[in-house]
């Protein structure tokens, strides 16, 4: 399988409402792919299908070469996932969170120990290892959540609005981590409401009313829509869908 993600005519209906309407595209290994759209455009539904949480109504998708329709459990094991809304257990310490996720993904105890040390050092969290996650600043928590999502060395990571509400510096430090992961060959699929972040992606797609209305590099997209920045592209495309 050449593609990290391959989607063909993927569809999801709820009653007579079509949330995702026969979308097709591919994501290459090591690519940072921006998955954009207005609220209610169908992004979350599509992401749920790709992460094995929701059964498609039609079409097919392969994530890391695995059919999401037939083997959703295997998909879950091969991917990392991080959401702004929920990632870490706040009542557990930093170390306990790492151990928990390591355990869930079936890592050996010795591996978890070694990885914990590396991770704490990299994020400079050693002094806080035994503190509750609830007490950490949001920015640190998000960096920790991302690193935990990479713990079992998935080749593909889904990031659902990872940077909402964090300060501009932390937001960029977070993108440093994303760039670094991509540099190491990890494929990243990212949703965001920050249009400057759309520019950091290799390619972006914009979803409107369940369909992919545009898919290209940010540069080409700006050319196509004669727009100054991605914010303008988004407004031109997504206005009809809001």
């Amino acid at each position: 399988m050449d593609h990290a993600i391959q989607i063909e005519q993927l569809t999801k209906t709820f009653g007579n409402f079509t949330a995702v309407n026969a979308i097709s595209f591919e994501v290459a290994p090591g690519e940072i792919f921006g998955f954009l759209g207005a609220n209610g455009a169908g992004k979350t539904t599509a992401l749920k299908m790709l992460t094995g949480l929701l059964k498609p109504s039609g079409g097919q998708a392969w994530v890391a070469g695995i059919d999401v329709q037939r083997k959703p459990e295997q998909v879950k094991r091969r991917i990392g996932y991080m959401s702004q809304k929920f990632s870490l257990y706040e009542d557990l310490t930093v170390r306990e969170n790492i151990r928990l996720y390591g355990g869930i993904y079936g890592l050996k105890r010795t591996d978890i120990k070694a990885k914990t040390a590396v991770l704490l050092e990299k994020l400079q969290l050693e002094p806080y290892a035994d503190q509750l996650v609830a007490g950490l600043p949001l920015g640190w928590r998000q960096k920790l959540a991302f690193s935990v999502a990479l713990l079992h060395e998935p080749r593909i990571v889904f990031l659902d609005e990872p940077t909402s509400g964090v300060d501009p510096l932390t937001r960029r430090q977070f993108w440093d981590l994303i760039y670094e992961a991509a540099h190491n060959g990890v494929t990243l699929m990212v949703t965001t409401h920050y249009m400057d972040e759309a520019e950091y992606c290799n390619r972006v797609s914009i979803m409107v009313d369940g369909k992919i209305e545009a898919l290209d590099t940010p540069r080409n997209m700006k050319k196509t829509f004669a727009a100054e920045d991605m914010d303008e592209v988004f407004r031109k495309l997504a206005r009809s869908g809001s």
Partner: peptide, 11 residues
């Protein structure tokens, strides 16, 4: 504006 897409935010 938190969690609201850029189009709705602009409106």
């Amino acid at each position: 504006g938190t969690g609201v897409d850029p189009v709705s935010r602009k409106e």
